[in-house]
Amino acid sequence: EADPRLIESLSQMLSMGFSDEGGWLTRLLQTKNYDIGAALDTIQY
């Protein structure tokens, strides 16, 4: 079963217009401990 923190973070990022095609966003959020800010910083640079 998916981590509730992942579901919450992923749904927030999907609502911002990101896609999780191929699961890349799920993996990114997992490596950033479900921190949306850290994930966005990684995507920006």
Rank of each mutant, 00 (worst) to 15 (best):
F18M: 05
L10S: 00
M16T: 03
L10E: 00
S9G: 10
E8M: 11
R27F: 06
N33H: 10
Y45A: 15
Y34T: 02
P4I: 12
D20C: 04
Y34C: 08
I43E: 02
P4M: 10
P4W: 10
I43N: 03
A38H: 07
S9D: 01
W24A: 05
D3T: 07
P4S: 11
E1K: 14
S15M: 13
I36M: 08
S15P: 03
S19R: 09
Y34G: 05
T42A: 15
I7M: 14
L28Y: 02
L40A: 03
G37H: 13
A39N: 01
D3G: 06
L29Q: 01
R27A: 11
Q30H: 11
L25Q: 00
A38W: 05
A2C: 13
Q30L: 11
D41R: 14
T42S: 13
L6N: 03
L14V: 10
A39Y: 03
L40D: 02
N33W: 06
D41C: 15
L10W: 03
N33D: 10
D35P: 02
I36P: 04
Q44I: 12
I7E: 11
A38G: 06
Q44S: 08
M13H: 01
G23W: 04
L10D: 00
Q44D: 14
F18I: 04
Y34R: 01
L28V: 07
G37W: 13
Q44P: 05
Q12Y: 11
E8F: 10
G17V: 01
S15A: 14
L10N: 00
A38C: 08
Y34S: 04
A2N: 13
E8L: 11
Q30E: 13
M13N: 00
A2E: 11
L10T: 02
L14C: 08
L29F: 01
L28W: 02
I43C: 09
Y34D: 01
A2H: 12
E1F: 12
A38F: 05
G22K: 05
N33K: 09
M13S: 01
Q12D: 07
D35I: 05
N33A: 09
T26R: 06
N33M: 10
G17M: 04
A39I: 07
R5F: 06
G37E: 14
A38L: 11
L29M: 04
G37F: 13
D20V: 02
D35V: 05
I7K: 13
S11K: 13
L10F: 04
L28Q: 00
G22I: 03
S15L: 11
I7N: 11
L40G: 01
L10Y: 03
G17Q: 02
Q44V: 09
D3Y: 06
E21I: 09
L29E: 01
Q44A: 11
I43G: 01
